[in-house]
Amino acid sequence: MSALLEADALHLRFGAVRALDDVAVSIWPGEVVAIVGESGSGKSTLLRVLSGQVAPDAGGVRYAGAEVHALGEAQRRRLMCTDWGYVHQNARDGLRMGVSAGGNIGERLMAAGTRHYGAIRDAAAEWMVKVELDPARMDDRPGMFSGGMQQRLQIARCLVTQPKLVFMDEPTGGLDVSVQARLLDLLRRLVGELGLAAFFLTHDIAAARLLAHRILVMRHGRVVEEGLADRVLDDPRHPYTQLLVSSVLAA
């Protein structure tokens, strides 16, 4: 077995700001890697570079033997709708608000090559159930759903094509705490059942502990600490990680 995606020596500057400063990352099949750090730490930039949306100034990202940033736009789009999934923090960025819930899920299947209308509708209904949405609401538009429901719909849209690797940008950000817990539990279950590899951006330490196998701590564009999730949280070495862990209020 080998790494699914590997990146090394990533550098990216925005003017005087080092958004990425010599970052190396890898992820293996079935592995969930949480990237934690405060706003401005470079974690969102890292996710965009890993998923091929933003090119680094230096360094490369390899997926399944291919250099991601050397792919043409069509090949990259193809990868995005077959092998990869991307869950945006704001569900509205990942959904088409003018299309029904079922259509949102089915559309991605069609983009990945499925043509049979009945099969698409069946898959959409099945995925609505998997993310705990009522399939009877398949024809409702996403705008009629609550924030947490929209986020679950986005997850269904993302996972219906059974991607191998999912990029999640603070998927529980901006949701009520009770809604977050439900979404996290759902993600934990789906990731386990589907054997997904996932990058998961969060500033929520408890969420990282629940979902991730491995944690990367970022600060000022650098990975300051990484390792086994429970070890990074229970035996943090870097001053910044110690600060992060000690700042959490125990409920």
């Binding site: 390792g227 229970d234 035996d235």
Partner: peptide, 9 residues
């Protein structure tokens, strides 16, 4: 114990 489990490095 935690070292043996790998929880502490």
């Amino acid at each position: 114990m935690r070292c043996l489990q790998g929880n502490y490095g």
